[in-house]
Design a protein around this nucleic acid. Structure first.
Length: 262
DNA sequence: AGCACTGTTGGATA
DNA sequence: ATATCCAACAGTGC
């Protein structure tokens, strides 16, 4: 799940459910996922704090605490948040549970443990240390997008997914953006002209905003999209050709062989 | 049963 | 600078 739209939905969810409630207890159920100091240190630091806001940078969620430190969550491939009004609630792969004074709780669940949990002081310093480029939705205009893309050597898909160039796009959404622009994922970036790049940028923004609008739920995405059809036997919603799965940038990639010529 | 596959990243290697 | 392969992990499907 968790690419930019999913994480944006988590951010909005956290803001809607969990602000201004004092954390009575933080249960670190999987200390190995805590990448800043230790699990017990994290637990001590969260106690008696409360969230004041949440921001997102690419696929990272940063929740600010009242003492100006930040809880940073990365969701790996399988992470999500769930809020409960029952303090005894649990989820199948609960890795961090925040129990609030009002007896509600927020759980960070991450089945495959590929996510990361941190508590940090300096947000900007963390983005730099994580080698995060500008967020594609919050901090990147068409000009910046084109500037960062031009001069790149490799294939367009790997550029779109390179979090240090600009961040937020992963495997699923890069396929969607390329499908909607009729560009093959293996196209060398240097083969794209400024016109192509402008189209790429505007489709990218459109796809990501629309995805956030529908809560990143494939069932609610437009009929003409690729995402709900990423499986064997499906056909292109535009030309009717059989969709194909290829390997590009080391990832399984779905394309329409009719619409996306190399 | 065994193997390949899966929305993440990060490191080693070429 | 960029690509590929592997690892981390846990679950599902063939």
């Amino acid at each position: 799940m968790p690419e930019l739209p999913d994480v944006e939905v988590f951010r909005q969810y956290l803001e809607a459910t969990s602000l201004k409630q004092t954390i009575e207890k933080a249960e670190v159920r999987e200390p190995s996922m805590v990448k800043s100091s230790s699990g017990s240190e994290l637990s001590r630091s969260l106690k008696d704090r409360f969230f004041v806001s949440a921001v997102r940078q690419g696929k990272y969620l940063a929740a600010q605490l009242d003492n100006h430190s930040w809880l940073i969550l990365h969701f790996g491939m399988t992470g999500y948040l769930q809020y409960f009004k029952d303090q005894d609630a649990d989820t199948p792969h609960n890795r961090l549970k925040l129990l609030f004074k009002n007896r509600h709780c927020l759980i960070y669940d991450c089945r495959r443990k590929l996510g990361q949990i941190r508590l940090i002081k300096d947000l900007e310093a963390f983005w730099r240390s994580a080698d995060c480029g500008p967020d594609v939705l919050n901090n990147l205009d068409a000009q910046g997008f084109i500037q960062r893309l031009s001069g790149r050597r490799g294939q367009i898909k790997s550029a779109l997914m390179d979090q240090s160039l600009f961040c937020g796009i992963g495997n699923i959404y890069s396929d969607e953006i390329l499908f909607q622009t009729g560009i093959h994922p293996k196209t060398p970036v240097k083969k794209l002209d400024p016109q192509d790049m402008r189209r790429l940028y505007s489709r990218m923004i459109h796809v990501l905003e629309k995805a956030v609008q529908v809560q990143a739920d494939p069932k609610q995405m437009p009929d003409k999209w690729l995402i709900p059809r990423r499986e064997k036997g499906q056909t292109c919603p535009v030309c009717g050709a059989s969709l194909e799965r290829i390997r590009a940038s080391g990832r399984g990639s779905w394309i329409c062989p009719g619409c996306q010529k190399l």
